[in-house]
């Protein structure tokens, strides 16, 4: 998978080393610990580097490496976010969106502070790195970045209340034997009341845990449910092809 920011090397013995770069962070893994040491030495020769050891905190994501798997979460980020939007004392709620809620652009309610709303949406978007569960609800409110009213803010705050009760959740990648790529796609039909466009959703699993996902309004207006489903399936296949090419 040689992308420019991610490199895979393999030596004669079949030992592999995977390195990926995020601006100045260097993360690497592989099947031979001796290779780690060699790589570290080579890097330290070239640049002044600090060896942080096992990855535990990276881009606001907490990583717990255990014997039987790896757990990633953004608990600290979620808590800081709640504090930032003064929702750290709120009452938790078990659902993200009110059942059957339809948000519309033209609800005639009072406008709210645009900067605060946009910042909230952005923060929630970053939280979807390890929380695919909030993705759909976040998508719903991010459609109204241009025209934000009290109703939209209320919907956004409901997501925060959900997070309040679930901030400890994350993704658990277990070392299960069954390691297959499985993907699912689905779509609604004309879910957005304003422009009648449908929403695509897909999720990819590797073994037991999902590693990539999407929830996005389709770019075209589907005339029937099957057309909407096809659009969703197509973007899912796109993603799959992309993963193969990496």
């Amino acid at each position: 998978m040689p992308t420019r920011a991610c490199h895979v090397c393999q030596d004669q013995n079949g030992d592999i080393l995977i390195v990926w770069i995020y601006v100045d962070g260097l993360i690497f893994t592989g099947n031979n610990p001796n290779m780690f040491e060699e790589f570290k030495k080579a890097m330290i020769k070239e640049f002044e580097m600090s060896d942080i050891g096992l990855m535990s905190y990276y881009l606001g994501i907490e990583v717990k490496q255990k014997e039987d798997g790896i757990f990633i979460s953004q608990q600290r980020y979620a808590k800081e976010m709640l504090k930032k939007f003064k929702m750290d004392g709120c009452k938790p709620i078990s659902t993200l969106v009110e059942c059957g809620l339809k948000l519309t652009m033209f609800d005639g309610e009072e406008k709210v502070d645009a900067t605060n709303f946009k910042s909230l949406v952005g923060s929630l978007r970053y939280l979807t790195c390890t929380r695919p569960d909030i993705l759909y609800a976040t998508g719903l409110i991010s459609r109204h970045m241009e025209n934000q009213t009290i109703t939209h803010l209320k919907a956004a705050k409901r997501i925060l209340r959900y997070i309040k009760g679930t901030s400890h959740l994350g993704l658990w990648f277990s070392s299960d034997k069954d390691y297959k790529l499985v993907s699912y796609s689905d779509s609604d039909w004309a879910g957005d009341g304003d422009d009648r466009k449908s929403t695509t959703g897909f999720v990819f699993f590797m073994g037991n845990t999902s590693f990539t996902w999407m929830s996005k309004k389709q770019p075209i207006v589907a005339l029937s449910t099957y057309e909407a489903e096809y659009v969703a399936a197509t973007s899912c296949v796109f993603m799959q092809l992309g993963l193969g090419i990496y």
């Binding site: 100045d24 962070g25 260097l26 993360i27 690497f28 893994t29 592989g30 099947n31 610990p33 780690f36 570290k40 890097m43 640049f47 002044e48 580097m49 600090s50 060896d51 942080i52 050891g53 096992l54 990855m55 535990s56 990276y58 990583v63 490496q65 014997e67 798997g69 790896i70 990648f173 277990s174 070392s175 299960d176 390691y179 590797m206 073994g207």
Partner: peptide, 12 residues
């Protein structure tokens, strides 16, 4: 996780 590899982290 599946291969039970450890992930290391370095900073430039």
């Amino acid at each position: 996780a599946q291969q039970k590899w450890k992930i290391h982290h370095m900073d430039v």
